[in-house]
Design a protein around this nucleic acid. Sequence first.
DNA 1: ACCAGTTCTATTGTGCGCAATTGAATTGTG
DNA 2: CACAATTCAATTGCGCACAATAGAACTGGT
Lengths: 162, 162
Amino acid sequence: MGEAVPGRDPLSLDGQLCFAVYAASRAMTGLYRDLLADLDLTYPQYLVMLALWERGTASVGDLGEALRLDSGTLSPLLRRLEARGLVRRRRDTGDERVVRVTLTQTGTALRERARPIPGRVLCATGLTEDEVAGLRGLLDQLTESVATHDPTSVGRPSTPER
Amino acid sequence: MGEAVPGRDPLSLDGQLCFAVYAASRAMTGLYRDLLADLDLTYPQYLVMLALWERGTASVGDLGEALRLDSGTLSPLLRRLEARGLVRRRRDTGDERVVRVTLTQTGTALRERARPIPGRVLCATGLTEDEVAGLRGLLDQLTESVATHDPTSVGRPSTPER
DNA sequence: ACCAGTTCTATTGTGCGCAATTGAATTGTG
DNA sequence: CACAATTCAATTGCGCACAATAGAACTGGT
């Protein structure tokens, strides 16, 4: 099919890692959309709930650090979760700057209905557990490298200046 | 901590593949944000330009199939690219339903300024070419499995019905 | 106590993603 | 030709992401 040349065009869409990650992420989000419809949660909302189920309570800043999201994303998301009665937000007594997010009874109970989800996701991926572990390792390494990356020290293979 | 079971809690945030993909995707997008600032392109706009640089011209439907995006995303995005003079949109003569997207001179020329980007991205990932190849393979497999996935046949390890 | 600097959250504005709807153009069938 | 079904793109509405800004609350130094 493809043209003989061993080295692909670096600017080809299919050859780029970026698109593979991007496409995989949206495919996963779509899968979760189906699986979470029953719980009436979006995927980012589910991630917030995961973090809260682990912690019980957390400040907006804690959630932002765990999920790598800022308040511009979390504030309205948490407002919707509160409107649904899954969490409660209250200013911390002692430091009125921080908003403490706490699970309600309903929010805590929702965890039971979420329990079958990870198993279904693993099934849908069609990967073995070993493959999943390897993939997670590579992705974590990728995320770390890219996040730590210093823009000013970007390797410039052969470009002197614009 | 978790209940007795040796394997990690399936509902733990850090243990899930979904979050690894999600975090990696956003980290990559952030990297491209920096690299593309010079070209004044967003990451999805860059993907559309990649597809057009490969094809020269394409219908909205072609782009949607290549990038797995629908018209709700592409229409306003293409409008912005056209407003910047990078592409031109015109109804196909012969089939007035399809909108043909064509690169302008400016849009074609922009490719030269994009050429150093893939190299810089590879550098920033901190991965070897072999690791990138393996990662791409796993991600493509993941995307395929998840996309092909039939929601009704979802494996339900032990849940009879809601 | 005062004030400058910092920390933390919320708000605003822009640009995706995607479901659902709309409407024009085309195709298939009688 | 008439007309129902289909195809294609645009629009609408909602929910993220993220940059930039604003504002309240805390901190440390004087």
